Computed example of a mutant assay.
Amino acid sequence: MKPLYNFIVIAVLACTAFMAASRHAYGQIDTSILFIAPERVEFPPAEDERPVTRLINLTNKSNKTARFDVKIENYMMTENGDVKRVDNFNYSAEPFLRYTPKRFTLKPNERLAVRVMAQIPKDLPHGDYHTHLLFREIPSPQKEQEALPENQGNAVHFDINTIYGIGVPIVVQNGTLSSRLVLKTADIAKTAAGTWLSTKLQRTGNAEAAGKLSVSHVIPGQEPVTIIAEQLVRLYHEVDMVERKIALPLIKGHQLSGGELVVRLQTDAETDTQEIRLPLK
């Protein structure tokens, strides 16, 4: 029986979460449909006003021909570390960017390079600016046809088709940059739902700040137990302080009791390691 309606889900990977798996800043995104490299595009401060171009390389990894629209979308970080889509904000890089193509088709294993050009206006204040370049799948004619309603009596059926989309962060830097990430506070709370770590991170300066956050359980006379391995933490220019609750994962055969929970932040400066120790009962 054919579905009465199709429910379309758009999956967008923005790569801007407060905490994400640590990866090299110029790594790659490898998904079931698109292989994208690099996963993040940076335009460092330019010496003059001439435009600068970067390439984003794409490969269709699926076994079907796929069509994509390319567009800029702004995502702004909030005070709880999430990101939300907005039309514009003070530190958007959208006004300085041009790109081509804006639509493309890729056969299986076919490759394409998207050109992104940045041109910085003369009077732009020093600091960094960011946005995302979104690659969004165009539904095939077959999917569009299936979305049309059909008479199936009183029965209602839903067929979930995913419209694929992935966003690549674009960061434009201008002038002299300065920033630092500080681990201000950390607290632990045990509830019926599990053990939670509350953290407060502060960003200073005129640019984003990043570091690697880790959590370990230390008991005197025993080997430390890693609770959270190094995770990349990034605060964008638009937020000065982020508060976030993190659910601590359960480690098989290990109890979070006694000793101390050590919360450690390693920033981009290798010598800048900050830590807070929380006693555990």
Results as ranks from 00 to 15, higher is better:
Q28H: 15
Q28D: 10
Q28S: 15
I29H: 02
I29F: 10
I29M: 03
I29C: 04
I29T: 12
I29V: 09
D30S: 07
D30A: 12
T31W: 14
T31K: 11
S32M: 13
S32W: 10
S32V: 13
S32G: 15
I33G: 02
L34Y: 06
L34E: 04
F35V: 05
I36D: 00
P38N: 07
P38E: 09
P38C: 09
E39D: 15
E39P: 02
E39L: 08
R40C: 09
R40D: 06
R40A: 05
V41A: 02
V41W: 01
V41F: 07
E42Y: 15
E42C: 05
F43H: 02
F43D: 00
F43I: 05
P44L: 01
A46G: 02
A46L: 07
E47M: 14
E49R: 13
R50H: 11
P51D: 12
P51K: 04
P51I: 15
P51R: 08
P51W: 07
V52K: 00
T53H: 04
T53N: 04
T53V: 06
T53G: 00
R54M: 12
R54P: 04
L55R: 09
L55I: 06
L55K: 14
I56G: 03
I56R: 04
I56K: 04
I56N: 01
I56Q: 01
I56C: 00
N57P: 03
L58V: 03
N60P: 04
S62N: 06
S62V: 03
N63R: 02
N63K: 02
N63F: 12
K64Y: 11
K64C: 08
K64P: 02
K64V: 06
T65R: 06
A66D: 11
R67P: 09
F68W: 06
F68S: 03
D69S: 11
V70N: 00
K71H: 06
K71F: 08
K71S: 07
I72R: 11
